[in-house]
């Protein structure tokens, strides 16, 4: 009887989600040229290396842009509208899309830090906190 292969295809998103589960923002970094990239992908667009490592982001960045959603496009968000979705450029040069509390003053280039929050069994999501505000866990 042929043995079943134990090989499985590498999930390039797994390190991000493993980091998120511990509250750490993990980014891919090319093991050859050192370029940091996000969202996760197979190849370094700078040197075309397939060798990839990971770094923990500082979590610091600046506001690029945002939207405030007033319409709930899924029942899951019906209780949450209006809510802000914020595009943040991290100090590492890559970006994330995060949520922000309603009292967060949205302004281009505002300095922020991002942190993961997780509710029950849902996937962890990133939240933006103004540098001068206290985070949920601090």
């Amino acid at each position: 009887m042929a043995q079943q292969s134990e090989t499985s295809i590498v999930d390039i998103d797994a390190p991000y989600w493993e980091g998120a589960a511990r509250g750490v923002l993990v980014l891919q970094q090319c093991e050859d040229c050192g370029q940091i990239r996000h969202y996760p992908r197979l190849m370094c667009s700078n040197c075309h290396s397939l060798r990839v490592g990971h770094v923990e982001a500082t979590g610091r960045g600046r506001v690029v842009s945002w939207t405030i959603s007033h319409h709930a496009f899924s029942p899951k968000f019906a209780e949450e509208v209006p809510y802000a979705l914020v595009t943040v450029e991290l100090d590492e040069g890559v970006r994330i899309l995060g949520r922000a509390e309603t009292d967060f003053e949205l302004e281009v280039d505002r300095q922020v830090r991002v942190e993961f929050r997780q509710h029950e069994q849902e996937k962890p999501t990133l939240w933006c906190i103004a540098e001068d505000q206290k985070g949920e866990e601090n």
Partner: peptide, 10 residues
């Protein structure tokens, strides 16, 4: 993968 769960749906 990375934005839908934050509420970026449409």
């Amino acid at each position: 993968e990375f934005e839908l769960d934050s509420g970026a749906i449409a």
